[in-house]
Amino acid sequence: MKLPAIVHKFSSPKNFYIMSGKMIPWFVWSFLLSLIFGLYYGFFVAPTDYQQGESYRIMFIHVPAAWMSMFIYIVMATSGAVGLIWRIKTADLMASVSAPIGAAFTLLALITGSLWGKPMWGTYWVWDARLTSELILLFLYLGFIALQASIEDPRNAARAGAVLAIVGIVNIPIIHYSVEWWSTLHQGATVTKIDKPSIHIDMLIPLLVMAVSFKLYYASSVLMRARGEILRREQNTRWVKEIVENERQ
C-alpha cells in the first residue's frame, strides 16, 4: 500500500520541526493548567477513602503513570511499524524519542506502586503477574534504548528498534489482563470496566484530569525531544544550517 504524496510532504522533518514549534506552547500551557486543577481536586476535593485513608491519593499519580507506560509503548511500536513499512523518517524519530519518556512513566508507576503497596499490602514488592509484567515493560523500553544506541546507522537503528518494539507489544495485553488471568494482590480495573466504574465521582474526576494532564505532558515533552533530534539527524541539510546559524547562543 502506498501513502499519498501529501503524507510524505507533511511529515517531512522540516515541516515537522516548524509545526511542532508552534504546537509546543499550547501543549505546555494546557498541561500546566490541567495539572494544577487535577492536583487541587485530588488533594482538596476528593474525599478520604473509607478503607485506605489518605494513602489512596497516590492513585492520582500511579494509575495515570501506568496508563501512560502502556500508551507510550503502543505509540512507540506503532510509529516504529509505520517507519518500517512506509519509511517515514519522522515516524522513526517519534519511536526513538518516545522511549525515554515511556521508561520514565514505567519507572514512576513501579515506584509509586511499591510506595502504595507497603502501607496497603504490607510489602513493597511481590512477584505477581501485574508487577512482573510491568517490570518487563521497563526492560523492553531500556532494551529498545540500548539497542538503538548501539547501532551507528540511524536507518538500521530504527529498523532494529521497530522490530523489538513490535514483538514486545505482546506484553501490553498481558499487563492489562494480568489481574484477571492470575491471582494477585493488585486490585482489578475500576475505571475501564464495561459497566459503571466502581469509584466515587470526586475521585474519578481528578484521576481522569491527571490522565489527560499526563497525555499533554507527553505531547509537549516528546515534541521537544523530537526537535533537538531532528537538528542532529538532518544536520547536513540547508534548512537546519540556517536555523542553527540564526540561533543565538
Binding site: 489518605e54 494513602s55 491519593r57 497516590i58 515506584i111 509509586t112 510506595l115 502501607p119
Partner: peptide
C-alpha cells in the same frame, strides 16, 4: 496525610 505522609509525599516527589 492521615499518617501516610512518607508514602504519599515520596510518590509525588518521585513524580
Amino acid at each position: 496525610m492521615g499518617g501516610y505522609a512518607v508514602f504519599v509525599w515520596s510518590s509525588y516527589g518521585t513524580a
